[in-house]
């Protein structure tokens, strides 16, 4: 039987792989945001597994690092939501293929 550390790390790796699949195959910004949240969750899981299951007595610090990841994810989600609102007002869609211009042509 493989060690629990390997099992938790493999679970985090699965989250990374699934998140990558979603990030690349999604067509809209909302779908990409959902996938990014999965990537961040996998990162937090691997941080906590590395802190809790290896010797060194850094349990608390690892958990705090995961909490920082959560806080950053919250800030990122709020900012991306605002960006999506702006993009939607300007392009009338959030499909990534439509977002090809940096500046309006007439202005």
């Amino acid at each position: 039987m493989t060690s629990p550390l390997a099992l938790f790390m493999l679970a985090a790796l699965l989250l990374l792989a699934i998140g990558l699949v979603g990030l690349i195959s999604r067509r809209t910004l909302v779908g990409m945001l959902i996938s990014v949240e999965m990537l961040l969750n996998g990162a937090g899981l691997s941080i906590v597994a590395a802190a809790k299951l290896t010797p060194g007595g850094l349990d608390g610090l690892g958990q705090l690092a995961a909490i920082f990841v959560m806080g950053l994810a919250a800030a990122e989600a709020a900012l991306v939501l605002a960006m999506m609102v702006v993009v939607y007002r300007r392009f009338d869609t959030v499909a990534t293929e439509a977002l090809t211009t940096l500046k309006d042509a007439e202005s």
Binding site: R26, R27, T28, L29, V30, G31, L33, I34, E37, A73, A74, A77, A78, V80, L81, M84, V85, Y88, T93, V94, A95, E97
Partner: peptide
């Protein structure tokens, strides 16, 4: 928090029924 935010995003950009993701 984050799931509620994403749900707001889904509602604000109105992309559920006719959207690009259906393809």
């Amino acid at each position: 928090a984050i799931c509620v935010l994403i749900f707001f995003a889904i509602m604000l950009v109105r992309n559920t029924a006719s959207g690009e993701e259906m393809h």
